[in-house]
Design a binder for these strands. Structure first.
Lengths: 188, 188
DNA sequence: GCGGTTATATATCGGGACGATACATCGGCT
DNA sequence: AGCCGATGTATCGTCCCGATATATAACCGC
């Protein structure tokens, strides 16, 4: 997950670790923390695999600013790997974090993969919704008051997210049709 | 976190691993998966620390049913540890999973700890809300359409949760006052 | 200009949790 | 008879977090 997120952010512009994490928090809105304890090992792992590379510290400018920063940039292999991960609608793209990270990079994801990911996420949230529904129906009165309150809140949140996903999916479909009609409409 | 959850469930009744996980999913509504890969190591760790104990497999009944099940029960130390964890309103009680687990056991948590935990959670969600607000305000138009949509959904969810927490907190306060007036009201 | 705090920046370590996998045993289905 | 799915316990590699350590530059009062 972190690998995908790092690749996606470096795809825009080269960056050093500290900056990368700020961008991560900004994009994911603390949906996911991604502490340094995982970020730096990930950067080294990616570098070792040749997906990112350390850029020269441009000594021309005023060197020796703060502590030596390591600016990373995406390699060609890194770009390939990012594209591969962006298209993958596997189970990791369905949980809260995974879905969020994928969606942030939707602009660089194919329309078909966007669709698969949105629908996968919807299925997941629907499952959670049904689980909560049956938990609330089952033994309506006997279970703990606080637990029931928690379940009710979770159910409402799930229902809202499903509606939101439905809107997004409908929008995707509409846009796809527009493009298709444009293609065939005034041909070329 | 798993430690706390296991202790809390075994507090009600002795149980074996497989059953425990079902109960876990039921209570937390797939808020948290808690796979066997973490559950069984946790059980052994707890046993090693003397917080839970393996109960005799009651050979009187038909023995040798399925594979030998290990039924665990809480020890006196385990009950102490649970009470300690339930009262702890530290940072782990603020994130999504931690808060959920705590709330499920609110019936066995002191009113003051319930208050601290609810307020801690509210502070956390408010922070997330403000982060998303500023992300949406900052560069209102230039950022990615999908990212913005994700942030809007996150913001709405946060706002709803804060409102929900406010209601819970108000309810807690009202109940506390009722108890106090009953105490002094018709003395005893 | 001296020391204190804060922000910037990289790094390591232990531990908790996950997903995949393996294994064993039973009931039911075909 | 043979297979599958539910029940049940267990391990392994990997990911990630939180705490912690270590530098260094900027800001600020004194």
């Amino acid at each position: 997950m972190l690998e995908f997120a790092v690749l996606g952010i470096l795809h825009d512009s080269a960056m050093h670790g500290y900056e990368l994490r700020k961008r991560l928090r900004e994009l994911l809105g603390s949906l996911r923390a991604f502490s340094f304890g995982s970020l730096y090992p990930t950067l080294r792992r990616l570098q070792r695999r040749g997906l990112i590379a350390e850029r020269d510290p441009e000594e021309g400018a005023r060197s020796q600013q703060r502590r030596a920063r390591k600016v990373y940039e995406l390699t060609a292999e890194g770009k390939e790997r990012f594209a591969e991960l962006a298209e993958d609608a596997g189970p990791s793209s369905c949980d809260d974090e995974g879905f969020g990270v994928h969606m942030v990079f939707f602009a660089r994801t194919s329309a078909s993969a966007r669709m698969r990911i949105l629908e996968g996420r919807r299925r997941r949230v629907e499952q959670r919704r049904e689980g909560l529904r049956s938990a609330l129906a089952r033994a309506g009165e006997q279970i703990d008051r606080y637990t029931r309150e928690l379940h009710k809140q979770g159910l409402e949140t799930s229902e809202r997210e499903v509606r939101w996903l439905n809107e997004l999916i409908a929008h995707e479909r509409a846009e796809q049709e527009t493009e298709e009609s444009e293609e065939s409409g005034h041909g070329r």
